[in-house]
Design a protein around this nucleic acid. Structure first.
Lengths: 139, 139
DNA sequence: GTGCTTGCAAATCGTTTGCAATAGC
DNA sequence: GCTATTGCAAACGATTTGCAAGCAC
């Protein structure tokens, strides 16, 4: 369901540079966390997890970094529920599924992402497909 | 783009009853507003508009009614951006498009809603397809 | 009359902002 | 040294909650 993205440690700096983002310590840490934990965490989850491993990081910095990474298309924001954004280091098109029972957000890598006709006059920058229901573990 | 839904005045009570919702004054008013204004308004927009036309309605009631109507599948919540939910009385599958310039949310009725394979083990209750970009007016 | 609904005010929670201290180059 | 970044505390905005008063049947 949730496929780990194997990117060599150190390689994330290259990705940031390629997207025009200076690879500062906290930025690399947030991005690395998202790469290693493709569980679509909230900003607060990222903050709590990094807080344990880093000498110091603030909630503000996590928000700053996430907004910066989003605006440079390094990560994507997922609006799948009320009141909180989730973040994903996988910016390729794939479908998300949220189980209303356990709250997990799954990547549906194996479901083909459909081709959707672009309506004339519109410029499409991003397409998100979000499903909700009951996951196998909760059925 | 945004097609008006023609439902005879009075018919909305029948819909509410069919979904197991007692058609109280404020509930009918919120539902009628959503039917007449398929602009995917926020709860606050609905509140402000109804405030003008009704003797009295509170923000709390608007939220209560919206949550009730959602839980009975009379209307759907659209999570298409940070910080605010939008509401739609059209519960059939259709694609939403949000222009980042003007902020409008359009229904893309003319774009075929794709058939998406259901991954085994998952029970899918709802599918939302949300696009963002630039609309014809803002290009 | 009983239970459901309303509506005010306060609380909550995710996120942003102002600003002074600090790090990067 | 100059600029960009950090981090605290406070502000903000959407939504929910507690609870007393009012309405539906």
């Amino acid at each position: 369901m949730t496929k780990k993205q194997y990117m060599k440690p150190g390689a994330e700096k290259k990705v940031l540079l390629e997207h025009g983002v200076r690879p500062l310590k906290h930025r690399v840490a947030v991005y690395r966390y998202l790469l290693d934990n493709p569980i679509h965490p909230t900003a607060d989850t990222i903050y709590s997890e990094l807080k344990n491993n880093m000498s110091s990081i603030s909630r503000t910095t996590v928000y700053n970094v996430l907004n910066l990474l989003c605006s440079h298309n390094v990560v994507q924001e997922i609006a799948i529920e009320k009141n909180e954004m989730r973040y994903d280091a996988n910016v390729t098109n794939h479908i998300h599924f949220k189980c209303f029972e356990c709250g997990h957000v799954y990547d549906l890598h194996d479901v083909t992402f459909p081709t959707i006709a672009v309506p004339s006059g519109f410029r499409i920058d991003a397409v998100q497909i979000n499903m909700t229901g009951l996951c196998p573990n909760c059925s």
